[in-house]
Design a protein around this nucleic acid. Structure first.
Lengths: 190, 190
DNA sequence: CAAAACCTACCTATTGGAAGGCAGTTTTCT
DNA sequence: AGAAAACTGCCTTCCAATAGGTAGGTTTTG
């Protein structure tokens, strides 16, 4: 199938939200990008608020599936943590784009409460995975100096999101790498 | 003096930028907040772009002065680091507000290049201080497990900014505390 | 007095959105 | 099977509200 319009709109909106912020793009931008009339977008998404909800929902589902599949493969804690880091890194697009979760946290006040709730659920989910990774890494010896996995997980998520901002501030992915270097050095490669 | 209008406008704009994002407030908002007509703002700031520059410049200057004075007092590395953390924490306003640097990084595309440059200089400045703090803390023994101060500084700044986002996502300052707990536990209190 | 500060009155472009039409497909009823 | 009804996807047209900004006049103040 030749990419249905609704998906194309979601893709375009996600790109826009992650590079320009939720307040930084308009229906007109999406319309031009997708090649449809502005008013036609309302057929798929009656309001920008609804669009934001579907956007965040899709994002949540995507990562939930992805990580679930990955976690089922049950590799070492170190590999799990590495994968999360690489994932955040890949989402950066060289410092041009932010994680949707970060972008929506910044634009919180312009978004419906449903989105904020989804963002919270998203963060809780990621922290859960990180916690598992640290716990596993502690017992299988693939992550060094693990004290409290819960604390480590909270710190790690903040580190990743902050590292994204660092990279974006200078549009240089090296700054992301720099920020996560210390954490990465605690992962034992085998 | 009864707070001059220009300062009142800058204050209002800073508050708005940090809570709503740069694209999330308008001259109309500022006008109502300060008690002035919308068009009168242009007398002080000919354009929103110019306003953003002055805003970031003032922010930069304020922190430069603050940290310079503080650094001159030359306390231990641990105290210096603690102070930076407390500073970021205080700027959070319980999770409602972001650091202007974070907010402007997110809204990068809507801002003039001068602002992006100031943001970069701001970040470089903070990293410099953190580096000094880690270096000092390493030699005076008030921060444990310091490996490479440069790497530590980059990671710490990302951690602080990410921790702010965490707190904002849930409007709960406890999430900031949680994220920086591990780092804080490395500071030796005396 | 002159400059600074602020005003009213506009302006243009853009914002998200409403209303209704229309071709093509699918479903339902007889 | 064939007509009628309903739905889908997109369109054009229109709209009120808001965006940032300009022009020029009036008030305030050093």
């Amino acid at each position: 199938m030749p990419t249905d319009t609704k998906t194309a709109l979601l893709d375009s909106a996600e790109r826009a939200a992650r590079t320009l912020g939720f307040d930084g793009f308009s229906y007109a931008d999406l319309a031009e990008d997708v090649g449809i009339r502005k008013a036609s977008i309302h057929h798929h998404f009656p309001s920008k608020a609804k669009l934001s909800v579907e956007l965040m929902q899709r994002y949540f589902d995507k990562f939930e599936t992805m990580y679930n599949e990955f976690q089922a493969s049950s590799s070492s804690g170190g590999v799990q943590l590495s994968t999360v880091i690489d994932n955040y890194r890949a989402g950066l697009d060289g410092g041009k784009s932010l994680c949707l979760c970060v972008s929506f946290t910044a634009s919180r006040e312009s978004l419906p409460p449903e989105v904020s709730q989804l963002v919270r659920r998203f963060r809780t989910m990621i922290i859960g995975w990180l916690e598992d990774a640290f716990r596993m890494g502690h017992s299988d010896g693939t992550i060094t100096h693990v004290q409290d996995p819960t604390q480590e997980a909270a710190a790690a998520l903040s580190l990743f999101e902050g590292a994204q901002l660092s990279a974006r501030a200078q549009e240089d992915i090296a700054l992301f790498d720099n920020a996560v270097l210390l954490l990465k050095s605690r992962i034992i490669q085998n």
